[in-house]
Design a protein around this nucleic acid. Structure first.
Lengths: 230, 230
DNA sequence: TACATATTTTGGTCATACCAAAATCACTTG
DNA sequence: CAAGTGATTTTGGTATGACCAAAATATGTA
């Protein structure tokens, strides 16, 4: 009556996952076993597997047994990833997405300035120091740059934000990855990070936001220099 | 060689969609036609259709011909929807998601206070007036409430934000929908909306953010009153 | 014990068939 | 001629059975 025969199988499996009978990392039963257990055809069994994969409850690499995955918010952004990939290819797509990042990070640094605790400050200082030490190593700088921003996403203690950060870096990687890496740019970016850090230490949200916006506006200028108007 | 025979079909179809050969609202060729065109089995044809659907390029209702849909950012959040649904069912899930909403809307009202133009102000006033006129009609108030917030998401002129708003309202609807609707609550909420509006008119981002946070904190208290700690 | 090899398992694909719901066509009727 | 109605075709959903190649596993050998 519901239309999809695979739905009942999906429901059963996802219940099994929630209840812990199937734990993270376990293998999903083979398709032929699912047929026997649920009295369905292989067609429906495969359909069920596909649906579970699209819901992030399992990861299904081709030619490999599907593996149970306890879904986090990352999985949600993974699911959106391929669609976003299309959207980024259309005019203004990258800019629109990048602007949301600017707004979110602006809010995050305000939050950091207002309520970062000792541990957060230590994390920021550590990340900033690592970033500064990597100015001469472009790849290393790229990594520590991301790490510095990642700390900002961690401060609120809300697991949604790190997931968003991962999504941003994944989605925008095609652009960032092709940007020329220059030590001079690294120096500028490190100075920007330092300015943001200083404002947070001064507990000045307005200054922190201003520094962050300046930093990301500068980054966007670099993107436009590389790609033209996109 | 990559493993998935359906991938080439997906690529061909999505290219056709991007190039406009298949426009929004068109019907996807029948599975049997895809078989003939691409020289594949029906299994693969169906697989391709499923992938296209998961990428938001088509909508595939059971027993209906798949329809081409020019994907917007809404489609991305749709894809994430089922996963988020799972996450909301686990402890703290709703709270975490709601907090991201608070932070985003706080940023949005700051933005509105700083850069809303005449048209935006008119839209806000219109929405607020409609909200005020609906205080005695709970359903109508619920709608105009959402509409008022929607205007905030529209102001930056970035299509990502309205998509986020739709996602929030969809994902949190199970909670909001079950909340008791009371005229007294409507009155309080309308007052909150007015306070936000006033701060925006005064071009005072701090006051606007404070009013918005107070409003949503109050809303969250109501949720907890109804559902307990979730 | 470690490594190379044979065997089994399992996912990916194809071909065919049947059913029921949609969509379409043909026909009647007001 | 338009609207409604019934018959026909199209099309998606599912079931079987089979074959291949890649993984996973077992086996035998050095």
């Amino acid at each position: 009556m519901t239309g999809r025969a695979a739905d009942s199988v999906v429901k059963a499996i996802s219940a099994r996952i929630r209840s812990g009978i199937l734990a993270d990392g376990d293998l999903l039963p083979a398709e032929r076993d699912l047929m026997a257990e649920f009295g369905i055809s292989r067609t429906v069994a495969r359909e069920a597997v596909r649906i579970l994969a699209s819901q992030g409850l399992i990861t299904a690499k081709p030619r490999h047994r599907p593996v149970i995955r306890t879904a986090g918010f990352e999985a949600a952004f993974d699911a959106a990833g391929s669609i976003v990939g299309n959207l980024l290819r259309q005019p203004g797509g990258v800019h629109n997405l990048f602007n949301t990042r600017v707004m979110l990070e602006a809010a995050l640094v305000r939050e950091a300035a207002l309520s970062a605790d000792k541990k957060d400050i230590v994390n920021l200082k550590t990340a900033l120091a690592a970033n500064g030490a990597a100015i001469d190593d472009n790849d290393q700088f790229y990594q520590t740059d991301q790490q510095f921003h990642a700390v900002l996403y961690d401060i609120p203690g809300n697991p949604v934000y790190p997931a968003i950060h991962r999504a941003y870096t994944t989605w925008l990687a095609p652009q960032w990855g092709q940007m020329p890496r220059l030590v001079d740019r690294n120096r500028v970016n490190f100075a920007s990070h330092t300015a943001i850090m200083d404002a947070i230490l001064l507990r000045d949200p307005d200054a922190a936001e201003a520094a962050l916006r300046s930093h990301l506006a500068d980054a966007w200028d670099q993107v436009r220099l590389t790609f033209g108007d996109i």
